[in-house]
Design a protein around this nucleic acid. Structure first.
Lengths: 333, 333
DNA sequence: AATTGGATTGTAACCGCATTCAAATTTAGT
DNA sequence: ACTAAATTTGAATGCGGTTACAATCCAATT
């Protein structure tokens, strides 16, 4: 409620001095600082963000667009982002795209209206060229997802090689008939992980049964349904790789609903290592992404962009690891 | 990038006219509107939010403070909030308190700086009188949590009666030795649910074994550990009520680790009905909160407050229901 | 004693937009 | 054709800060 001039009056100085106490204290007399600070404390004065922003043409809020806030994978990344944002005096504006590209696109206006100084995209529903155009005008970083051929700062893991790693693990357990439940093919993530799967299969000379590769959409339900489909074939797989944990849960439950057990009858491996993966039974073997670190790194990158620091590197591939739990077992057939 | 005066120049009108086209088109000639709109389209002009906000002294962002973004219970509420926020032209600023009251308090400055027009608190880490003080100055609504004796608009469920309902269910299944894993006692939520438990036990004349009531902190780990503690007593309970689902998962897993099974040996009931409850095995019997509705209702309430509408009612108790799944069974001992 | 210069502080001009008030233009009425 | 009324438009002002620039003060220097 109190404005800068109220403070100025009570402290018997001009508004300029009050402003200086807050931003360039070294140019103000010791004693004056003390007096002003006291009044500020007294009145519980907080500078009006809009006025400051208008004058300085810079805000301290950044926008984060998430494909689905309900997925704990993203909320972990979000935590990382918020952590370093707060540490640096930024606030995060949340945009949940609800898996809808149109809605996602709507958030771009927040940037244009200067309501946010920069943006972190955890999604990839926007066309590459639009992203590129926006990134040319505003600080933007991509996290988790990335766009092919687009030179926007990015932090993610290597989805191809980690999917390869997971597949290799299955192969080394002796599995030959390996099913794959992919993410949506219109997402790079979905495509990359599938690519890794194919690469590993080729490398080890294991034949890919086309019927055993089904497209899901990263949801539990799709994992469940696709697994049912796989189980309907005469030759059921002995192992299944689901492109994310939620689908893996669906697969496991579908398998058990059919009276089979995981991992004795069929091994299942997931991707992401979300919070529930270790709680689920059987505890899910999966690829672990450093979610929190992806978040912190992305935010650090964005800060670099916003403060126009010289960036030596703008593409970050973080380490992932295979975490072994109880959902995979040696092939017995 | 383009400002209002750029538009004005290109459309051959004054900035006043441009402004009017955007806010009071009925006071501008048909033809002028068309011309201005064309230029706006052309230049991709977006009014500067800071300037507008400064002038109008109102912003369209609201603040939501969450105790823990990682808990899917809250992300569901958040979805509800965002849904109606977006529909009404508001953006949501996310504040993750990380279960830390200090951090939570820090978010209040966002209100004072006028960066947000209102606030929804999903937490209750701030002292009642501070909340009351803030609520007197700014639009604030409490969701999920509430504060005793504080007359701040609130939307939640009746935690006492729903805990009673869950307990009754256990009692009706024939259980006499019922354990309870509570939430932290410094939260109203934790206390209310415990109260409901006591009420039901008293009503049915079932003795409460003090040893079988343990305090957790709503985390999986605490559920696990407290259950281990319950299992260490000579007389183990035949049923356990955990004050939220995550702790219930912990309890189930602890029970199974000891070689017992749920629900045959021990029944477990949870609270919240988070996404994972139906995926978990055994599927968790639990109290379902209308998370999405809590969110939408809270946001509607807040909008009412911000637009200074006459409110006939500011306390909303939403319906909960007991959802029966596979983690409870008749008492066999 | 007059001059100089550093340290402090105040004055005033913006930042981009909404809005008041008066001017300009059009329409209507006689 | 001329005036009054209604409609449309523009110039000026202020929202609450920041900051360039000018003014003031006082000790140090000459």
């Amino acid at each position: 409620m109190p404005g800068i001039k109220e403070v100025a009056k009570q402290a018997n100085v001009s508004i300029a001095t009050v402003s200086r106490v807050l931003s360039k204290p070294e140019s103000v007399a010791e004693e004056t600082i003390k007096r002003v600070l006291e009044v500020i404390e007294d009145l519980n004065y907080q500078p009006n963000a809009a006025a400051r922003q208008l004058r300085m043409s810079e805000t301290t809020t950044i926008l984060v667009v998430v494909p689905d806030i309900t997925n704990t994978f993203f909320s972990d990344v979000l935590r990382g982002i918020e952590f370093v944002a707060l540490e640096n005096g930024y606030q995060v504006l949340l945009g949940d795209a609800g898996n809808n590209p149109e809605q996602e696109k709507g958030y771009l206006n927040i940037l244009r209206q200067k309501k946010a100084a920069g943006m972190i995209l955890l999604t990839a529903g926007i066309e590459a060229n639009l992203v590129e155009e926006i990134a040319a005008q505003y600080p933007v970083v991509l996290a988790c997802e990335y766009l092919e051929g687009v030179n926007v700062p990015t932090v993610s893991i290597d989805n191809v090689s980690s999917a390869r790693k997971a597949t290799e693990y299955l192969i080394n357990l002796g599995h030959k008939r390996i099913g794959y439940i992919s993410g949506p093919m219109n997402s790079v993530l979905g495509r990359d992980r599938l690519k890794g799967f194919y690469q590993a299969m080729a490398q080890y000379n294991v034949k890919v049964e086309p019927d055993l590769v089904q497209e899901g959409d990263f949801s539990y339900k799709s994992g469940f349904n696709m697994m049912l489909k796989l189980l309907a074939y005469s030759h059921t797989p002995t192992a299944v790789f689901a492109a994310n944990d939620e689908m893996a849960f669906g697969a496991v439950n579908a398998i058990e609903e059919k009276g089979l057990t995981v991992p004795q009858d069929i091994s299942v491996i997931g991707f992401d290592n979300i919070k529930f993966s270790s709680i689920f039974k059987p505890a899910l073997t999966t690829i672990s992404q450093p979610t929190f670190d992806i978040g912190t790194k992305a935010m650090e990158l964005l800060i670099g962009l916003m403060t126009k620091q010289e960036m030596k590197k703008t593409q970050f591939i973080l380490e992932n690891k295979l975490v072994l739990r109880d959902s995979c077992y040696k092939c017995s057939r």
